[in-house]
Amino acid sequence: MYLYDTTYLRPGSIDEAKALYDAGESPAFLSGGHTLLPAMKGHLARHDRLIDIRRIPELQGIAEDESYLTIGAATRHCDVAAAPVVRNCIPALAGMVGTIGDVQVRHVGTIGGSLANNDPAADYPSAALALDAIFRTDQRTLTAEEYFQGLYTTALEPGELLVSVSFRKPEHAGYAKFRNPASRYALAAAFVAVHADGVRVAITGAGNDGVYRWHEAESALGHKFESESLDPLRADMENMSSDMHANAEYRAELVKFCTQKAVTNQNCITLL
């Protein structure tokens, strides 16, 4: 309920942030704090300093070029959902971000925080994987495949700062989510993007190991992009997580149904 003692710091540049981080004993970057602060309040995490990265200019803003839509890591969900450039360029992405949590959550939570946290039930990871995103950090550039490394795990090294994420613009894309009746996080969700070089299907909420690509669905849809192409398929039960809200069998069913809905409803989102 109460944080252990900590020091709040607010650097204005990446260099300053790094220096503050290096000088700490158990430091953490703070973005929206919607995940970090509850963990600290529950005494599941203890950090001697919180380095708020939201005022660093490089982590701000949304920009578009020929092939990519780039979003600064500290951009809030509400700003992504409402940005005309996102709505025009990848309507399914804007729509998806508009379904995260509730109004309060969307006005505080950030894309960087969500992707650095890599919650297996979060929405953003599926978009990043299906839209073949490029992750830019203060040190290097990673592909989505390199970046996601399982439950709550990413390629980020301690002290490595996520600066921005570039989503490859698809021809079109769709997102369908079945929500956990209690938490409203995804019990299963599918982001289906059609790129010039093929279909990418990313599943979140359901996988044992976090977000993953459903390759069988991708190739079936590559032959014919319609929901019926998925009829003969079955999501791999071995790969499904199981909890009080959905066992593996049910999750596998939801994965397929969400994917089909995402295929049918391209350029928009489907809440199930």
Binding site: P181, A182, S183, Y185, M244, H245
Partner: peptide, 11 residues
């Protein structure tokens, strides 16, 4: 108890 928060206790 396995439903100790709003994450698992639906309302």
């Amino acid at each position: 108890p396995s439903a100790g928060s709003f994450m698992d206790y639906g309302m």
